[in-house]
Every structure is written in C-alpha cells, then in structure tokens.
Simulated assay, not measured.
Amino acid sequence: MNPTEPFLPQDKVFTADKKQYGKLELKARARGMRHEPTPAEAKLWEHLRGGQLGVKFRRQHSIDRYIADFTYLSHKLIIELDGNGHSEPDQADYDRGRSALLAELGYRILRFPNEQVLSQIEAILAIIKASL
C-alpha cells in the first residue's frame, strides 16, 4: 500500500466512474436490482452470500459505468448471469464491449446462462471455486 494513499477497508472500495455515477444513477439502479433479483440471481446469491465460498462477494456492484451481477473485488472476478435477451445480436454486441472494457480494467468475467444456474448450481459453484 502506498503510504500517501488513505486506507480504505475492502467493503468501502469505490469502483464506479465518478463522472458517470450520478448521471447514470448507478446507486439507485443497483439497489433496485438487488431488491428484485432474477430467480437465477437469487439462487446463486444463496450460495455466495456471507462468505460461503471463503470470500466476500458483492452483488449488483458498480464498476466504471456498469453494474456487475456479482463481484469479488480483491481478485477482480465478475460473475454475470445471462437471460435469453443476451443472445440477441444487439445485446451480445453490447456485452462484448462491456466485457472488453472490464477486461482492460483487469477484471476476469465468468458468464453463465440463467438456465444453467437454476439447473446445475453445483457445477457453477465448482467453476467459481476453481476461478478463485
């Protein structure tokens, strides 16, 4: 740690683009997404919350100008769950651009279809554990 930088506890890390944070209403949008998770997000969160995998994940956390479904900040690992809409060409292009920007920031991204999370949660958890 650089002695001239203030110490910020891990759960106080601000990773959003400060110029976009207010303009895009990232805090309010993320809060709304946490309060109304998809069934797949709710199921995965049951297994990630409270350090059940030995690490602390955040859900619906703002990074740059995006909101990641689940994030483990100290390892820069993002888990994204994709519904049917992510297979649409425009959405797939958007996802590729988003992933490229997050990769430039040093993040690794794991993507899983919602159906796989709902039907194969143990396999998903094994992949996540291996990525840690």
Rank of each mutant, 00 (worst) to 15 (best):
A123T: 10
D93F: 12
M33D: 01
N84W: 13
G51W: 08
A40C: 06
G83N: 03
S87K: 07
D69W: 01
S119G: 04
L26Y: 06
T71P: 03
G85F: 05
G51S: 11
D95Q: 08
S74L: 10
E122W: 03
R59I: 03
G50R: 12
E5V: 06
A123M: 08
F7G: 05
G106R: 09
G54S: 10
I109L: 14
L26I: 14
R31D: 08
A28C: 01
E115L: 10
G85Q: 12
L48Q: 07
M33Q: 10
L132M: 15
F112P: 01
L118D: 05
R98F: 13
I128E: 00
Q91H: 07
K129H: 02
S119M: 07
A100Y: 12
S131F: 01
P113F: 08
I67N: 03
I109G: 05
L26P: 04
R58L: 02
S62Q: 06
E80F: 09
Y107L: 10
I79R: 00
F7R: 12
K27V: 09
K56L: 10
I121H: 04
M1Y: 13
L53Q: 09
A130F: 00
Y72M: 05
K43L: 15
N114W: 06
F14D: 13
Q116V: 12
E46C: 08
I67P: 00
R65G: 00
V13C: 05
G83M: 04
G106E: 11
R31Y: 07
L101E: 14
A68R: 02
T15Q: 12
A126K: 11
D11G: 02
M1I: 13
G54K: 06
L105C: 12
I127K: 13
A68F: 06
M33E: 03
A42C: 04
Q52P: 02
K43Q: 13
R108Q: 12
G97A: 13
W45E: 07
Y94T: 14
L24I: 02
P37Q: 08
Q20Y: 00
R59H: 10
M33P: 00
L24F: 03
L118E: 12
D11Y: 04
L77V: 08
A123W: 06
A28W: 02
W45S: 07
L48E: 10
Q60Y: 09
